[in-house]
Amino acid sequence: MDIIAQRWLISRGFINTRTWGCYTNEIRKKQRPTWQELTLGSKIMAILSDLLFTAAFLILLYILWQLYWTAVPAYYDQKELVSRSEWDMPEDVTKAAQPLDYMPCDKINGKASYERVWGVDWQKEYDLNWKEPTEIKSMIGRVYVPKFGADFVHNLVQGTDKEIVLDRQGFGHYESTVMPGCVGNFAAAAHRDGYGAPLGDVEKIKVGDSLIVRTRHYWYVYSTTGYKIVQPEQGDVLLPVPGDSTAKPTKRLLTYTTCHPRWSMDQRYILQGEFKYWAEVKSGVPQELLDVGLKLEN
């Protein structure tokens, strides 16, 4: 900038040379004292203010990390787990899946139902009794919520450990609850904010909205029936018949739990759904997902 223009701007008060705006060394040297010229008090204040700005910068970084960056490793962890899974694919990804005319998890010839449902030896595939997992080796399924669009999909793995499940894989299945589709309460937890925030907009899900879980071979489609806001210690929402520890379950329920209010851990938001239908993955994609434009890719 021309020196005359600078002086004109300074003289009119457009540039405050006491705080900012010294464009040339000539002006800077006249207006701003060097470090040596500062008094001891000014030096201490200068150091203190710089340290406070540094702390503010680090705190800002921490907030950005917690809210947004944590989604990045979570996304890649989920993608990596999916890439390791060899799952069924529909023969035609544009065709609506045909609902099956029998119910999931029913006992066939007295044999444990999940073996038939999952097509794998469930006990070998997932050790239901593990307590201190160190690594997630396989997933139960993937969670879709058509209300959140075709891009919304998160892994569903066994357990609700924060570090290796919720922080990395999206949804964690409560070990004490039944598997998707079974009679009882299938319950899973997910973060409300940070780590991809799978249930960040959970309050937007209204009664009647579909909640879909895809396993290796099947789609399980639930319909939202309502929500509750409870205290963290109110674990009875996970019971086979929520709120009644003695009742025998007859319905196939779904429960998603997450923090409430958003950005807080004071309470829990409980989203409840009931089984609508199930279908083989090979037969197609649920109509609810086709409606929002899902292009299924393994």
Partner: peptide, 10 residues
């Protein structure tokens, strides 16, 4: 959250 929350309560 996680194992320290609902699971223990259940």
């Amino acid at each position: 959250f996680g194992n320290l929350g609902f699971e223990e309560a259940v």
